[in-house]
Amino acid sequence: MKIWIKTFARFREVFGDRFTVEVPLDATVLQVAKTVECMHDGGRGMLMESDHTIRRSVILLRNGRRIPGEGREQVRLSEGDELTIYPPVAGG
């Protein structure tokens, strides 16, 4: 199935602004995130931790609504969903 990905900030510089990825039917947020990270060598380590979980600071939204909590990686997406990925920044 096709999932739309929308990114911001430094993720946009590496992965692009808005694009689609092909993932198996009923893929989870974690599977989609892994697919995105593997798209570009320069993106390795930006989205995923070394233990293959999604960085906890990264904000995720499904169709414009926050995917909250610890169980967010296991949320299953549907054909045509948009996954927004925002990496918060901290500098001042």
């Binding site: 911001f8 900030a9 430094r10 600071s57 918060p88 920044v89 901290a90 500098g91």
Partner: peptide, 24 residues
């Protein structure tokens, strides 16, 4: 907050909007 060429802003109105720990 800022990093490189990008930055973020949000306004917290206590009791009405998400606070910083809700968002981050």
């Amino acid at each position: 907050a800022v990093n490189g060429l990008s930055g973020q802003m949000t306004t917290v109105i206590p009791g009405k909007t998400p606070c910083l720990e809700c968002i981050f």
